[in-house]
Nucleic acid binder design. Structure first.
Lengths: 387, 387
DNA sequence: TTAATTCGTTCGCCGTAGGAAGGAAGTGTG
DNA sequence: CACACTTCCTTCCTACGGCGAACGAATTAA
């Protein structure tokens, strides 16, 4: 009956505070890219004496690269240090219906390697083989893996239910984590997109945002106070279920709102207006049609009204301050976005910016990078001093 | 051109980590109430050697009181330490139309002193005089002040606009903080209620909840991941503005939904159903009427449907997992709450509990206590080791 | 060439953490 | 009643890391 070897759980002790300083320096360097030790003392508040050995370690580990001397008007020139983004790699894995796409990126979100893999055997096995293979000799720098679960766009806990055993939470995440030995995060792709836009897209300057993703369904990703919020059961952002439309009828996992106003529904209507095969981007097609066809213009207006009610609902509940349009909603032209903004402004209780997301397909990747990097720093909420 | 004397902003340095340990012990003691040093070593992970002087200090400062020896089967009995809630006092100030009510409470939320004051002169002056007077010789133990702004229930930034200059943010908060020298938080009362129920009411066991407060207007307070979330402009929870009701018409600061389904609206309808003067609790009156009067029963059902749509909307956006009914909504009887729960379950994408809030009037006070205590610990996100 | 200036490093003090040992205060047992 | 035993708390001691201060380094200005 020996106890499990629980690590004595020391408190805030020595090792911890050392780690905090390390992270403080790394995170500063990540932002500033090229700086000297003198600047580090200013920015981190650490004394030069403390920095000397710390920086030495970081150079040895490859986080920092010593560059030539910088310019200075007088005195000894500062020896510049450059942050090496390749020192930290992350893997972003996207699960798609019959394949997985896997990308290795550095901490700038620059893709170092990528590959799409047909899904044949076990998912966990495939991931655990592909990631190290793709990372190659960069494997020791791997800091985390983020896995984006598909089709969750507007299903969350509910719609995922059938595959929950396979995809969500424990099974995949923990298995991969055990095998690869780095933190693994599993989340739905809309949440990852929101994190991506927040970290490197149209939301870097705000702490709160809502990303509205319109595809086969409609889902939202939510960033509040700088963090993605998933709600109690991970179903936050299931805005396709909003009871906004008396005419909307949901069914088995499809919400009443998205049943009428998702990309699929729009496509049907567009095909009815302009017979032919389904266009690649129904929204763009509709916008184009609306210029000449009054029926299309009328429907576009209906659509914008519907989406605006959706956005206003979100604003009333969480007041994100900024709403990003993603997926099919990003295909609106400037005029339509402006119209949407006006509708929202008229009905919302708080000023809210509506604009397009900017990262497109790369949003998930950037989100994965941001997840994986913060997972690496987990347990150590930022204690950085004010700049 | 001397620089402002910015404190050198040391990083995570010595004093800081000492402070962290202090808070770690205090917070553990606050939860456990009666414990020995031996238990503290287990719970905090600090070594006995570290604890001895720390506990000595805390006893000297009045945070802990040494009690007689406890029981033990063998060996030296543990000397028990009792947490003294009176060691930390907070002030909760409620701004009401023409008066302010001021309460001093200990960290259990037990009211030590209270008083209602007619508002004559300047608000800030009044507060800064009343609080110390009321605290009396307990003043040195004052850890924070929370000010609940009134009538913000469903106005947030918008409805507050006229009085923003006087009430919100900087002016009052900062002035009082400067004068009294303790952290001051200003927030609207619904947010405080949500914090209160989370800290000491019907939400102590969950990290996420939504408190729906129905009064003259309808507002919601939001706790996500254990924190009250206010949104980008402080307008989170403005659910009275939800565009759920095609028939609802909002006007100058009144949302379309609350215009039809707030306590005021219900009162009018109840008076129409049973002429007389307006009952104290329109909802209770309606529930009673519904037993015999089919019209009342029909209206009650409409009302529950409306509220359920409101709740479902919130669930779709943030998935709080638990919804607490407060204000007039807490006057529903068990049957009606059950019916509401069923309606929500049928339409929500995620399982959600609906129940009554339990603190009633005391919710704001408990919220203020929780705010003030966490304000005292601010800047030091919990680094407590896992239990 | 010398002074002035700014950077980075090494040295050494100090304070805190935590290990080890010892005293304190009980219970059980011969 | 004496003795071992157990558990709790304290005190002593050592090790380690942060930071102040002095020092060496590398350049510009005079």
């Amino acid at each position: 009956m020996t106890d499990v070897v629980t690590p004595p759980t020391s408190p805030v002790s020595r090792e911890r505070s050392k780690e905090i300083k390390r992270l403080s320096v790394i995170s500063t360097a990540r932002q500033v890219r090229l700086l000297s030790r003198a600047e580090l003392t200013e920015l981190t508040g650490l004394s030069p004496a403390t920095l000397t050995p710390l920086v030495r370690d970081l150079i040895a580990e490859g986080y920092l690269i010593e560059r030539g001397p910088g310019t200075s008007r007088a005195g000894r020139p500062r020896a510049m240090l450059e942050f090496n983004p390749r020192a930290e790699l992350v893997a972003a894995v996207s699960l798609e219906p019959s394949r997985i796409s896997c990308e290795i990126a550095d901490s700038d979100g620059a893709v170092v390697a990528h590959r799409a893999i047909r899904l044949t055997g076990d998912i966990v096995d495939t991931i655990c083989r592909s990631v190290p293979e793709l990372a190659g000799d960069g494997l020791p720098a791997l800091r985390g893996v983020a896995i984006a679960a598909p089709g969750v766009i507007s299903g969350g806990a509910v719609r995922l239910a059938p595959s929950v055993g396979l995809i969500e939470g424990r099974p995949i995440g923990e298995s991969v984590q055990r095998t690869l030995g780095v933190p693994v995060v599993v989340d739905n792709d809309v949440n990852l997109m929101a994190a991506g836009e927040h970290a490197a897209g149209a939301g870097t300057d705000v702490a709160d945002l809502l990303l509205l993703h319109v595809a086969d369904g409609i889902g939202a990703g939510l960033v509040l106070d700088g963090q993605v919020r998933r709600g109690a059961r991970g179903a936050a952002g299931e805005v396709g279920f909003l009871p906004l439309d008396p005419a909307g009828r949901g069914h088995d996992g499809i919400g009443p709102f998205e049943a009428r106003w998702s990309e699929n529904a729009i496509a049907e209507r567009v095909v009815a207006l302009a017979p032919g095969r389904r266009p690649d981007s129904p929204v763009r097609a509709l916008v184009a049609l609306a210029v000449t066809d009054p029926h299309a213009a009328g429907y576009l207006d209906e659509l914008l009204h519907a989406w605006s009610r959706l956005i206003v609902s979100c604003v009333c509940v969480i007041d994100p301050g900024r709403v990003l349009l993603s997926g099919a909603a990003a295909d609106l032209d400037d005029a339509a976005v402006g119209r949407l903004q006006d509708l929202v402004t008229a009905a919302a209780p708080s000023t809210t910016e509506v604009r397009r997301a900017v990262l497109g397909d790369r949003a998930v990747l950037h989100g994965a990078v941001s997840y994986a990097l913060s997972a690496a720093a987990a347990g150590l909420p930022t204690l950085l001093p004010a700049p």
